[in-house]
């Protein structure tokens, strides 16, 4: 009993030291976050570039295209904006479509809370969640399986990824007329390859594999039956809700 209490005190002591250290930038954690962001940046390069090119085509200035990537960090949403602008649609259409496309982050952000809570101060965590995307989410959640969350890691990961998104948009808006086909470099497969690897790394429990496969099938089935949901990516939300519920049910049986 005494031993256990001492152990507990030890763990708590460590947590306090850790929190004190976290008040300053933890360089090692920051570097790790930046390093983990590199594959994401590679994947964003062709996407941000293409956004810059298209934004320019549809009549945005270089500074507008770049600022859009600074203020909004939503690949799908930004492409939708371009599409609606091209079709001569209204601002409100763009905003409503973006609300639909971004609503899934309510779910993603909520699922990071148990990891961030008590480790990253709420204000810092909220501000850094600005940089939450499908990719930074997947990488961070994978990291949290083995290491505790820290402000510095999250800052390194999210800010580097965002910077990659901003600079590739800028490059696209400036150089758009010179490079037209980025497909031949194979970069179009960067994000699918990243998802594949993160999925493989994320599978720890047997139930994970069943739920990943069933969510994938459900997501495609919804997309097939309701193309409109595919268009605004709400099939991801519905499939995830069903999938996670199945996961709890399968896990509960053991």
């Amino acid at each position: 009993m005494v031993h256990r209490r001492n152990l507990f005190a030890g763990v708590r002591g460590q947590a306090v030291t850790h929190q004190l250290k976290e008040k300053f930038m933890d360089k090692k954690e920051l570097k790790q976050g930046m390093k983990d962001a590199l594959p994401i940046v590679l994947g964003y390069l062709p996407l941000g570039f293409a956004f810059g090119v298209l934004a320019k085509d549809v009549g945005m200035t270089v500074s507008q295209a770049t600022m859009m990537s600074v203020l909004c960090f939503t690949g799908a949403g930004q492409y939708i904006a371009i599409g609606v602008m091209q079709a001569g649609g209204a601002i409100i259409t763009i905003i409503m479509a973006n609300l639909l496309v971004n609503i899934r982050y309510l779910l993603f952000a909520t699922s990071t809370v148990p990891y961030l809570k008590d480790r990253v101060p709420p204000l810092t965590a909220s501000l850094l969640s600005y940089g939450l995307t499908d990719e930074t989410y997947a990488v961070a959640m994978n990291h949290y399986q083995d290491y505790p969350a820290t402000s510095s890691y999250l800052a390194g990961l999210n800010l580097t990824s965002h910077l990659g998104w901003i600079s590739s948009s800028l490059l696209g808006a400036i150089l758009g007329s010179f490079i037209t086909n980025t497909d031949k470099f194979g970069l179009g497969f960067a994000l699918p390859a990243m998802y594949t690897c993160l999925l493989v790394m994320m599978i720890n429990r047997k139930s994970d594999i069943y739920l990943a496969v069933s969510t994938a099938v459900i997501c495609l089935a919804i997309g097939y039956l309701a193309p409109a949901m595919m268009g605004n990516l709400s099939n991801i939300i519905l499939a995830t809700i069903i999938g996670a519920t199945l996961g709890v049910m399968i896990n509960g049986q053991h």
């Binding site: 739920l211 193309p227 499939a239 995830t240």
Partner: peptide, 29 residues
């Protein structure tokens, strides 16, 4: 139970994203 449910969100999302990015790369299955 909510925590457990949330712990399944990440693998579920990745399953969906991987499937969509490979089987519907241009937005259509």
């Amino acid at each position: 139970v909510v925590k457990e449910w949330l712990s399944f969100v990440a693998p579920a999302v990745l399953g969906a994203l991987t499937a969509l990015s490979v089987l519907a790369p241009q937005g259509k299955i």
